[in-house]
Amino acid sequence: MKIGVLALQGAVREHLTLLEKVGVEAVAVKKQEQLQDLDGLIFPGGESTTMGKLIRKYDLLEPIRDFYRQGKPLFGTCAGLILLANKIEDADEPHLAVMDMTVKRNAFGRQVDSFEAKLPIKGVAEDFHAVFIRAPLITHVGSEVEVLAEVNGEVVAARQGHILCASFHPELTDDARFHQFFVDMVREAVAMR
């Protein structure tokens, strides 16, 4: 099993480290040819505007959607979550638009409002150390989307079939439980194929 981390910009190294910690082969992905031999793909934290531009520049939009249609799992954190959403508030167009949800960018405010907190995440942990940095919120979810975590009644982690996302950064701690959860999703998807 091999999992890629989209490496156009952002916290790539941290995701690779956590994947290796749970014993999975992990690669940094910059080009579409690299998608072929992957079983899952992670979209890291970073700047969604920058990543969205580079995804288009290097013609990755359709290849990643195809990857998803083949039943291969995706996992987005913070900016990565924004890339997955069907709709982005105050933005002209979404990016990959594979997950039935609306997101609001910088929903908690500016950097001075960034925070860390302990959260229960359904199926993952009761006390996950979640780091929110200029974080987005999921303001609306479709019927296929399962909510995994909330902050003040707002959705911050969710799953839709073989897509997983979080508005915080599990990659910034050394807690690999969220990554283990994703790896289990990828393992199931590989068994189904």
Binding site: A7, L8, Q9, G10, A11, V12, R13, E14, G45, G46, E47, T50, C78, A79, Q111, V112, D113, S114, F115, E116, A117, K118, V131, F132, I133, R134, N152, H169, L172, T173
Partner: peptide, 24 residues
């Protein structure tokens, strides 16, 4: 914000820079 939320920690401040990596 609940009591549980901490702002301005090293992790939050350094983490912000981590998100800028590979960028201009």
């Amino acid at each position: 914000m609940s009591q549980n939320h901490q702002v301005g920690t090293d992790l939050v401040k350094r983490g912000m820079a981590e998100m800028q990596k590979g960028g201009v």
